[in-house]
């Protein structure tokens, strides 16, 4: 009996030591694809996206209440993103990147540039959302 208790205690101690040794880690972050939670705010998604897009060189097309497309033609690239609005959460995904020719102005093109455009678009949307959250509290 005491052997079993000792073994049990040893196992418990090991388990506690293991759990304590596991470092505290934070959530992973994606530059543009993290879902945008609208929370409990009664947000008119179409109007919010329209205003957010106005502040950017992107154009917005509404496919349905749950799906929007964003398009950008710049520096020889055509970029398209898909924004889905499901259960009060917006999710942005990169649909396509097509080269259209840059007329000799091809420097600094590539993934980094596209990534910056996507981050900037997401930020424009979340900034507009922040303004709406503030307005709802006033």
């Amino acid at each position: 009996m005491s052997k079993v208790i000792n073994r049990s205690l040893r196992l418990s101690t090991l388990l506690v030591m293991f759990l304590v040794a596991v470092p505290v880690t934070a959530e992973p972050v994606h530059p543009y694809a993290d879902p945008i939670a609208l929370g409990d705010q009664a947000v008119d998604v179409s109007a919010m996206l329209a205003t957010a897009f106005e502040a950017t060189p992107w154009t917005l097309t509404k496919e349905s209440d749950a799906l929007y497309l964003g398009k950008l033609s710049s520096k020889g690239l055509d970029v398209q993103v898909r924004i889905s609005a499901v259960d009060n959460v917006l999710t942005m995904t990169l649909d396509s990147v097509t080269e259209t020719g840059c007329g000799g102005n091809c420097k600094d093109l590539g993934e980094k540039k596209v990534l910056r455009w996507l981050v900037s678009l997401r930020r424009s949307i979340t900034f507009e959302l922040t303004l709406r959250v503030r307005d709802s509290l006033q």
């Binding site: 972050v29 530059p31 993290d34 945008i36 939670a37 929370g39 980094k112 990534l115 910056r116 981050v119 997401r122 930020r123 979340t126 900034f127 959302l129 922040t130 303004l131 959250v133 503030r134």
Partner: peptide, 29 residues
């Protein structure tokens, strides 16, 4: 979040007793 010095922090969701604020700048978050 909106009036902070420099670039504004944006709303990233909230829960009971907390608000998440996001700061994107020069490729870092």
């Amino acid at each position: 979040m909106l009036e902070t010095k420099g670039r504004a922090w944006t709303y990233e969701g909230e829960g009971d007793g907390y608000i998440l604020a996001r700061f994107d700048y020069r490729g870092h978050t």
